[in-house]
């Protein structure tokens, strides 16, 4: 997982995976959520998603929750929400700067 532990940038894939379980979801639902939200632009391979979910679980940003029966469901943790809020601020700043420089093209 290429993200800066000191509070720096998350990758797009990491951020989308982190946003998915604000409402608890199992792995396949995370995959569908990302595909729907990006209009099919971002499709995650199951191997990539599996590795990323495990990495986020190890960081304590998401945690398994027991409401899904056989399938393992994940929910975002408080720590994960804090990380998502930090990332949102960073992206807003980036978008502001880009808009200023690129001008009225956006």
């Amino acid at each position: 997982m290429r993200d800066n532990v000191k509070g720096g940038a998350l990758t797009e894939v990491t951020f989308y995976i982190l946003l998915s379980p604000y409402a608890p979801k199992h792995g396949y639902a995370v995959m569908q959520f990302i595909e729907e939200r990006t209009g099919g632009r971002l499709r995650l391979g199951a191997g990539t998603l599996y590795g990323a979910l495990n990495a986020l679980e190890e960081k304590g940003w998401i945690a398994p929750c027991g409401s899904g029966g056989r399938k393992k469901e994940y929910a975002i943790t408080e720590l994960g929400k804090q990380a998502a809020e930090r990332e949102l601020k960073r992206l807003e700043e980036l978008t502001r700067t880009a808009k200023e420089i690129v001008g009225g093209t956006l």
């Binding site: 499709r43 995650l44 391979g45 990539t48």
Partner: peptide, 14 residues
């Protein structure tokens, strides 16, 4: 749809 198990460069490298 395409059938890829690994889709990000980081994961492909690993």
């Amino acid at each position: 749809r395409p059938f890829e198990m690994h889709t990000t460069f980081e994961d492909k490298i690993n």
